[in-house]
């Protein structure tokens, strides 16, 4: 596990992420998304963040992608819809590409500038125990607040999923 491997996995993630947003068929996009998530996880492992890498596989590649599969079942995948999607993709890539360039250009331009830190910050490996000690020790308050976040999302989702007629403005 070294920096070269992390860089390789990271570039793989970048390329497959580009393929995700340029595919017209939603199923193809999902498969490339899986590749993106797995290569991100590989780069986490290479950098020594084994817990984050495992969480990436379990939560994103596992749970979240499964939810996406359910969404795919509700999407219209007929050839006509595909054609429409292709036509839309023809122009849609311009603004996101501009934003990405806006972020990437300074990053590359400043790489060789004097004083810039060109060495990758290779920290020590973080074990799951250390992370657990942090989350249930000094960071316990933040974990509790994050549980409030899930509670709010849950109540909103439940309310939107409720059957019956919509009510008036209140």
């Amino acid at each position: 596990m070294n920096a070269t491997f992390a860089l390789w996995a990271g570039s793989l993630a970048l390329i497959s992420a580009l393929l995700v947003v340029t595919r017209a068929s939603v199923v193809h996009a999902l498969i490339w998304l899986l590749v993106t998530l797995l290569s991100l996880s590989a780069s986490f492992f290479a950098l020594g963040a084994s817990f984050a890498g495992a969480a990436q596989i379990l939560i994103y590649a596992g749970a979240i992608l499964a939810v996406f599969v359910f969404v795919v079942m509700t999407v219209d995948a007929s050839p006509k819809a595909l054609e429409q999607e292709r036509a839309r993709l023809g122009r849609a890539w311009v603004p996101p590409a501009l934003v990405a360039a806006l972020v990437l250009v300074p990053l590359f331009a400043w790489r060789g500038a004097p004083g810039a830190d060109t060495a990758a910050p290779m920290g020590a490996a973080v074990s799951a125990t250390d992370l657990g000690m942090l989350l249930f020790g000094p960071w316990a308050a933040v974990v509790e607040i994050a549980s409030g976040l899930l509670l709010a999302a849950l109540m909103g989702a439940r309310h939107l999923g409720r059957r019956g007629k919509p009510e008036g403005r209140g």
Binding site: W139, V142, I145, A146, G148, L149, A152, A153, M155, G156, H159, L160, P166, E167, G168, R169, G170
Partner: peptide, 24 residues
Amino acid sequence: AATLFVGLELVTLALIALTVLPRS
């Protein structure tokens, strides 16, 4: 950074849920 992000998201998510209450 952690409290900044979690606080911001808690406000936003609760606000979204409050916004869609009438479902109009």
